[in-house]
Amino acid sequence: MRRQLSLTLFLLFTLFSSFAQAPSVTYHNKKGETVPKKEDSYFYRIIARDIESEAFKYVEFYTQGDVPKINAYISKPTFIQSTIGPFQSFYPNGRLYEKREYNNKNQVIDSAFRYYPNGLIESVLFYKTPSDEIYIYEKMGAKTDPTLFILAQDSLGNKLAENGNGKLVLKNLLSSNNDNYGDPDYESGPISNHKKNGEWVGKFRSYTFEETWKDGVLLGGISMDSIGEKITYNQATLTADPSYPGGINVLRQLVANNFRYPREAIDVGVSGTIMISFIVEKNGQMSNFKISNDLGYGTGPATIKALRMAKEVWKPGIQRGRAVRVAYRLPVTLHTL
């Protein structure tokens, strides 16, 4: 245990010695849920502000062996999907799983590569530079998929699709390591001229789906869960992030209005940023409140108490037409006079 703690401290120092504030460190199980101790975790996450770029360095390590899991930058510490610049993820054996590039709008751009555990390329995709002229399919009122499919092959190097034509089989080879839903997530179907065309099928977590595509436009889809419940969706309801009524600044103001400084925090003049993590549930309610970064003197519990007083229900995150649970982090800055 002492050696593991020493290694973690060394990693924190070497990775974040040039960053502004002390890094935020949280521990997580396979589902990504926060757990209190490192020994109870499957991986741990470190986030710290970069002095030069004002972005946030975002890394994750598998707890066993402190092996890198993710190496990236994000623009918002509350939202780990706000990736900017180069992104890399790794298998538990330390080999590269995926690398891609994001612009300052958190959109994937340029070439993206995914690899098998043996090091061979699984797929090569190319993401167009975002442009309404390219993406908007005006007649159908839907956005086209910005992805151009270049290459897909099996783990032995046999080509499944080449030069944008063939049958694509994309597997999330990390998903079976990260959740309790059995086989890896996947999607499979024909491509022509670098775009999805025809009937596609796949699996995501606990449900399967069928989709119809034409020249990169999703015409419609049906997802079915383990008990046979079916939900239809289209491009507009394919995915969506959770949102608070009126925007996140409304929630921040509610927390500020409801926050009551503990007496001991006033006495010592506590100032700084508290980070609260929670889950936006499928019904829009907040749950699983945890203090990711505490300033002490009762300020963490006081912040959670203020956050619980927000009565409005979130619009939940959406994945293939289904409401999903989404982890969220909210920084709260305190100043005492």
Rank of each mutant, 00 (worst) to 15 (best):
1 M>S: 12
3 R>M: 13
4 Q>M: 11
4 Q>E: 13
6 S>C: 07
14 T>P: 00
16 F>Q: 03
19 F>D: 08
22 A>W: 04
27 Y>P: 11
29 N>F: 03
31 K>N: 14
31 K>S: 15
32 G>K: 06
36 P>K: 07
41 S>Q: 02
43 F>V: 00
47 I>S: 06
48 A>M: 08
50 D>S: 08
52 E>S: 12
54 E>S: 11
56 F>G: 04
64 Q>Y: 14
66 D>N: 15
70 I>F: 03
73 Y>H: 10
74 I>H: 03
79 F>V: 03
83 T>F: 12
84 I>R: 10
87 F>A: 01
92 P>M: 04
97 Y>R: 06
101 E>V: 06
102 Y>C: 09
103 N>Y: 00
106 N>M: 10
106 N>Q: 11
108 V>S: 03
109 I>F: 04
109 I>T: 05
111 S>G: 00
113 F>V: 01
113 F>H: 11
118 N>F: 04
118 N>Q: 07
120 L>C: 10
122 E>H: 15
122 E>P: 06
123 S>Q: 11
123 S>K: 09
125 L>E: 13
126 F>P: 01
130 P>W: 13
132 D>M: 03
133 E>P: 01
133 E>Y: 09
137 Y>T: 06
139 K>P: 11
142 A>T: 12
145 D>K: 01
145 D>Y: 02
148 L>G: 06
148 L>I: 00
153 Q>N: 01
159 K>Y: 11
160 L>G: 01
160 L>K: 11
161 A>T: 02
162 E>T: 07
163 N>W: 07
166 G>Q: 11
167 K>P: 00
168 L>Q: 10
168 L>W: 14
169 V>P: 00
170 L>K: 11
172 N>I: 00
183 D>S: 10
186 Y>G: 05
187 E>W: 12
188 S>F: 06
190 P>V: 11
190 P>M: 13
192 S>M: 02
193 N>S: 14
193 N>L: 10
195 K>F: 06
200 W>A: 00
201 V>L: 00
201 V>A: 01
204 F>Y: 13
205 R>S: 15
211 E>V: 10
211 E>C: 13
212 T>G: 02
214 K>M: 14
214 K>E: 15
217 V>K: 03
221 G>H: 05
221 G>F: 10
222 I>K: 14
223 S>K: 02
223 S>Q: 05
225 D>P: 04
227 I>N: 05
227 I>K: 08
229 E>F: 13
231 I>Y: 01
232 T>N: 14
233 Y>D: 02
235 Q>F: 08
235 Q>T: 07
236 A>V: 10
237 T>F: 06
237 T>Y: 07
239 T>W: 09
240 A>E: 10
241 D>K: 14
243 S>V: 05
244 Y>S: 02
244 Y>K: 02
247 G>Y: 01
248 I>G: 02
249 N>I: 01
251 L>N: 02
254 L>V: 09
255 V>I: 14
261 Y>D: 06
263 R>C: 03
264 E>Q: 15
268 V>T: 12
268 V>Y: 12
269 G>F: 05
271 S>N: 13
272 G>Y: 04
279 I>M: 14
282 K>H: 04
284 G>M: 07
285 Q>T: 15
303 T>N: 03
305 K>G: 05
306 A>N: 03
306 A>G: 07
306 A>W: 01
311 K>Y: 04
313 V>Q: 07
314 W>D: 00
316 P>N: 14
319 Q>D: 10
324 V>K: 15
326 V>K: 12
330 L>H: 03
332 V>C: 09
336 T>N: 12
336 T>R: 04
336 T>W: 06
